[in-house]
Design a protein around this nucleic acid. Structure first.
Length: 782
DNA sequence: TGTGAGTTGATTTTT
DNA sequence: TCAACTCACA
């Protein structure tokens, strides 16, 4: 019994042992929050609480998975319901679908599906006010849904033009979703919340069923999520939430900071536990973070402290340009790795917007420093994957109009735009689904004989495939690929891109196979579709691979790294230009920097450039005012704008800048000769690529001899592997287990989806493989 | 049905 | 700057 508690601190133990009644765990960064949650679940199970009565909700699949694993270690064999909000709602909604006008087999539209439906709705309305993009309208609808405003109840604010448009579009969009028996992401929460609100009897039953509820990252809940959680814990208020108001960075997506700030009002007898001891960062990093966040008003003050070492001072560096900023960081990383002090995986580089990653990528690639970017093109968003999955979606839910539209002429089967429009009109007239209209193509007005035949063939194809839906998913998928002609269509193509698509489809087949293995038995198509809709594959970011990590500040939440660089800490970037309108938004930007800073375990460097290219324009930069809020007197301040080497130039620039009053250098140090690895030093000590099996001298590159912009701009295929297995390069010789020796002619894709096209010496010709799966061995790099 | 010039509009994005 | 989208044309 006590072994569970033995490893915990006093505060952690208090949280774990508090089982009955509401509990608010205010968990600072690095305070062992996940540990508390998992131990608390294990503790409850040890107390004899039935696993079915425990529900733990997270925001991300990653968090849910991690907790599942850790709970399984602490309490083997006990199944508690631990999932994301969306998954939980989806499962429950399938049981009570008819209450909200759906059928149990409803489809889940991802962002691009719902966007395409929205565009149709907008087009159908022939709006006069064309001022707003579909994205803006989608934002308006999403905001309404997150605020629990249904289509019927939406009232635009007077004098709010976007609101007026949303008021028009939202009802039609929602009607079409229902007609297609589909929901968007927001609907999963909205339907669930309304279901609970409008069915007291059902609410009471579910409240009783989930007697113990835990919510992670409570500061990120929106009104819909709040309502769901609240609805399930009125009679049984054993609700434990964890969160940190200081790490709320999704306000722009509807997260409501008041949910956590006012928790004590909702549950007056709440027990509040503060986890203030940080086990992650050094004292100097934590002080910087604490002082920064102290400037926020909307928060619950915490006294963050750590017993960790003082550590080296936080570095604040000014660079001449974004180019030199990137180069200096790369050189520093290279030097550390060369010296054997660090591995590439120890480093992370954070930025406010994705556009900022480009320069960094170029430089890292040029220096052959292995890196990986989190959030590349998502696998399930690729055209070929969406196409094939749409077939499955139609089979599972024939009313799914977006999916039908996607596959009806993919691959091309001579069903043109006009034919489709006629079918849509007919379906609207008869109030039937698009597929039902297609079934009667012979009698649809305006459809020629030839088109009617093509449509009939398509319907026959779907009907034939429909008979297979109880088979294992891989098998269904296989039949879809062969009988639809999709596979042949790609095979026949000469385009290299299409060969890569084939490889991706292979990948999908193997994902289906793995799913079938996990879910033996028949008829799991719907669950497979749900998984592909709700699980995004950026989860495959591997900590195991030895690479520098690049990501946005948002993406960094929940992670930690020994050394962190945060770039472009500049006015207009961080805080972002668009966040300056309201104090709340500005505070959120400050929290974003706080989150970034607190990811660092041992070393932290913030930097900015004096000039930055932005949308093709070069402009002077004003350092972020957040920098002035840091404890600068205890930090290392470096100026890398040229310093002692070009005194005149610096003087010129300085006078030029102070003239327009934009440059009060917050980091100025009187002498530039503080010991630090200079660029030259780094360039000379760094002589070979970090992760190359050979010692080819051709890859030697340093800051001193950076290649031209044109070369840097070369497509990834001609440079080093961006984020794949670095032993594979264009021109390299490989051996394939089956086809023998070949030469790599192209590389594409990234991460675990990285593909190589290989020309074989044997009769095998040219083939494309997913590197992660292919039995390929590098013999000699290019 | 696919290509190519021209236009436009550019945060963050757990699901 | 650049990529995504539209619209006209073959």
């Amino acid at each position: 019994m006590s072994d569970l508690l033995a490893s915990l601190t006093d505060a952690q133990r208090q949280a774990v042992e508090h089982v009955e009644g509401p509990l608010l765990i205010l968990a600072g960064p690095g305070s062992g929050k996940t540990r508390v949650i998992t131990h608390r679940i294990a503790w409850m199970l040890r107390q004899g609480i039935r696993p079915e009565s425990i529900l733990a909700l997270t925001f991300t699949n990653k968090a849910a998975e991690e907790m599942k694993t850790r709970v399984a270690d602490l309490a083997p064999g006990q199944q508690v319901w631990l999932s994301t909000f969306h998954r939980f709602c989806s499962r429950l909604l399938r049981q009570y679908a008819e209450h909200v006008g759906l059928e149990a087999n409803f489809a889940i539209y991802d962002t691009s599906d719902s966007r395409s439906l929205l565009k149709q709705a907008i087009a159908a309305l022939k709006l006069e006010d064309g001022r707003f993009t579909s994205d803006q309208i989608a934002g308006g609808i999403s905001w309404a849904k997150n605020s629990l405003i249904s289509a019927e109840n939406y009232k635009p604010r007077p004098g709010h033009p976007l609101g007026a448009v949303v008021a028009h579009v939202y009802p039609l969009y929602q009607a079409r979703l229902l007609k297609a028996n589909a929901v968007d992401f927001d609907d999963l929460l909205l339907h669930m919340a309304l279901l609970l609100r409008e069915n007291p009897e059902l609410r009471g039953r579910l409240d009783l069923r989930y007697r113990y509820i835990m919510v992670d990252e409570y500061q990120d809940t929106n009104l819909a999520q709040y309502t769901i959680v609240r609805g399930l814990s009125i009679d049984q208020p054993n609700l434990a939430v964890t969160g940190d108001p200081d790490q709320s960075i999704y306000g722009w997506r509807g997260a409501n900071l008041s949910n956590i700030l006012d928790f004590e009002k909702d549950y007056p007898h709440v027990r509040v536990v503060r986890l203030e001891q940080n086990y992650r960062s050094t004292k100097s990093i934590l002080r910087a973070a604490a002082q920064l966040i102290g400037n926020n008003v909307r928060r619950k003050a915490k006294g963050l402290f750590t017993d960790n070492a003082e550590g080296s001072p936080v570095r604040l560096v000014r660079h001449a340009s974004q180019q030199t900023e990137a180069e200096a960081i790369a050189a520093r990383i290279a030097a550390e790795v060369r010296a054997g002090r660090r591995r590439p995986r120890d480093f992370a580089i954070f930025y406010r917007t994705n556009a900022l990653s480009r320069v960094i990528e170029y430089v890292l690639r040029d220096m052959a420093i292995p890196y990986q970017m989190v959030n590349g093109v998502e696998f399930y968003q690729r055209k070929e994957i969406k196409d094939v999955l749409s077939y499955l979606a139609v089979l599972n839910n024939p009313r799914n109009e977006v999916a039908v539209l996607r596959v009806i002429n993919t691959p091309a089967r001579a069903i043109g735009k006009t034919t489709i429009e006629r079918l849509q009109e007919f379906a609207a007239d008869r109030k039937c689904s698009l597929l039902d209209a297609a079934r009667q193509s012979g009698v649809v007005p305006g459809i020629s004989g030839r088109a009617a035949v093509a449509v009939a063939k398509f319907v026959a194809l779907i009907d034939r495939l429909m008979l297979l839906t109880v088979r294992p998913v891989e098998e269904v998928l296989f039949h879809v690929l062969t009988e639809s002609g999709y596979e042949d269509f790609l095979r026949a193509s000469q385009a290299e891109e299409d060969q890569e698509r084939l490889a991706n489809i292979q990948e999908l087949l193997s994902a289906a196979r793995q799913f079938d293995e996990r879910n033996p038995g028949v008829g799991h198509l719907e669950e497979f579709l749900e998984e592909t809709a709700l699980v995004n594959d950026t989860d495959d970011w591997e900590t195991s691979s030895d690479r520098v990590t690049l990501m946005t500040l948002h993406a960094s939440k929940g992670l930690e790294f020994p050394v962190v660089f945060i770039v472009a800490v500049e006015e207009g970037v961080l805080p972002h230009e668009r966040s300056k309108e309201s104090p709340d938004q500005l505070e959120e930007e400050r929290r974003l920097l706080f989150v970034g800073i607190t990811r660092a375990r041992e070393e932290l460097q913030l930097s900015y450039a004096r000039q930055r290219e932005f949308r093709g324009r070069r402009g002077w930069v004003v350092p972020s005012h957040f920098l002035f809020e840091l404890p600068r007197e205890e930090m290392t301040l470096e100026d890398e704008c040229g310093g002692a080497h070009q005194p005149t130039e610096v003087a010129d620039e300085a006078s030029q800048i102070s003239a327009d009053g934009t440059d009060e250098f917050p980091v100025w140090s009187d002498s530039g000769d503080r010991p630090r690895p200079s660029d030259e030093e780094a360039a000379t000590t760094f002589e070979a690529p970090l992760q190359s099996p050979d010692n080819s001298p051709a890859t030697v590159t340093g800051v001193a001899n950076l290649t031209t912009a044109a070369e840097l701009a070369m497509p990834t295929s001609s440079a080093f592997a961006v984020s794949g297995r670095d032993e594979f390069r264009v021109g390299g010789i490989v051996r394939h287990a089956e086809f023998g020796l070949g030469k790599i002619v192209a590389l594409s894709g990234g991460g675990s989806r990285r593909c190589a096209t290989v020309a074989f010496a044997s009769h095998a010709g040219q083939r494309t493989f997913v590197l992660a799966n292919a039995p390929l061995q590098a013999i000699r790099s290019g």
